[in-house]
């Protein structure tokens, strides 16, 4: 989808500065905008071509195929947001495959290491969804409506910067309060612990 409709966004997400065939998929690496390359890359050869167009020889456009004023404004952040999301997603798939194999073998409750990994992974879905949201919002820049309407054209001419700062601070404060409230209530629930086994059994009986 992205490859077909927003190739410049795909190029920025993947840190692909130069276009061409047999595009590699960067797993790790730091985008370097001055040198127009990925530093310390660790990549899967041809994988991006296959993912985007189903063929190892397919050509995937790079950032250099587009005028600079159509590049997403913050390429580094977009690249990292996307890679965090994709990396965590891959991790979830692996974890779930392993967990399901163990469950199928009836050993899920006994695999101590796996249970630790599952428990420690609990913040990752939040991080992954946030990073995914950032990917969408950074990737669509500099457009509000793709190819039709630039973000810079969408600025209101009657609302001043001070007003925007005020509401931004207001929202930040409100969300901070909500965040604290959430942690407090969830923490309280966790400290409560799960229901004891006898009450769980009672509940099951009453449901039947």
């Amino acid at each position: 989808m992205v490859a077909k409709h927003q190739p410049v966004t795909l190029a920025a997400m993947e840190g692909r500065f130069h276009g061409g065939s047999n595009a590699e998929l960067n797993v790790i690496g730091q985008p370097d905008e001055d040198q127009q390359r990925i530093d310390n890359p660790l990549y899967l050869p041809d994988a991006l071509s296959i993912l985007a167009f189903g063929h190892a020889n397919s050509s995937v456009q790079g950032l250099d195929d587009f005028p600079k004023n159509e590049w997403p404004t913050n390429i580094e952040l977009l690249y990292y947001a996307f890679h965090i999301m994709a990396g965590l997603g891959t991790l979830f798939i692996l974890l779930m495959i392993i967990a399901n194999i163990q469950r199928w073998r009836g050993r899920l409750e006994k695999s101590r290491g796996l249970l630790w990994a599952l428990m420690l992974a609990f913040p990752f879905p939040y991080i992954a969804t946030t990073a995914g949201w950032m990917t969408a919002e950074l990737g669509r820049q500099p457009w509000l409506v793709f190819r039709l309407f630039r973000t810079s054209q969408g600025v209101s001419d009657v609302v001043g910067g001070g007003n925007v700062l005020f509401t931004l601070m207001g929202f930040t404060g409100l969300y901070f309060v909500l965040g604290v409230l959430y942690l407090f209530l969830i923490g309280r629930e966790i400290a409560h612990g799960p229901q004891t086994i006898s009450s769980t059994i009672k509940l099951e009986v009453s449901h039947d």
Binding site: S156, D157, V158, V159, N163, F166, T167, G170, L174, L178
Partner: peptide, 17 residues
């Protein structure tokens, strides 16, 4: 939405709270 900017935000905040 631009003209009632601050009023709309008050509305949002009140709805959230």
């Amino acid at each position: 939405f631009a003209g009632f900017y601050l009023a709309f935000f008050l509305l949002l905040w009140a709805l959230v709270l």
